[in-house]
């Protein structure tokens, strides 16, 4: 069972309180009426699905009921950080490769 730190509640809770909600930081096209079908399809359906670091949204469904972001390894399932909506991740694939640290 994953133990997830909710940045709004400020404490670790068990996985069963949360719901994973997929890839984070997906931007809706600014002008949907005038974007191409490819851009709209990319927004709706196409995902990074990395084997490794993944930035994803989780919902604290039976807690504060707020969305927040998680950086998690999709192979080891280790959670590296959690951060509030609107914030950017501190740990990315680039920073991991550059820093050499985990």
């Amino acid at each position: 069972m994953l133990h997830i730190y909710c940045p709004y509640c400020g404490e670790h809770r068990e996985e069963s309180e949360f719901r994973p909600k997929g890839q984070a930081h997906i931007l809706r096209p600014k002008d949907p009426d005038n974007c191409s079908d490819e851009v709209w399809a990319d927004y709706l359906f196409f995902r990074d699905n990395p084997r490794g670091l993944h930035h994803e949204m989780w919902l604290h469904a039976t807690g504060c009921r707020k969305y927040f972001n998680v950086t998690r390894d999709t192979v080891s399932y280790e959670i590296l950080e959690t951060y509030k909506m609107g914030e950017q991740p501190k740990i990315t694939a680039q920073s991991r490769a550059a820093g050499g640290e985990k």
């Binding site: 069972m1 996985e15 994973p20 890839q23 084997r51 993944h54 999709t74 192979v75 080891s76 399932y77």
Partner: peptide, 13 residues
């Protein structure tokens, strides 16, 4: 399991 994963194992819940 609801989250993305490549770990070939599942969660207890």
């Amino acid at each position: 399991d609801g989250y993305n994963g490549y770990g070939q194992r599942g969660s207890y819940p």
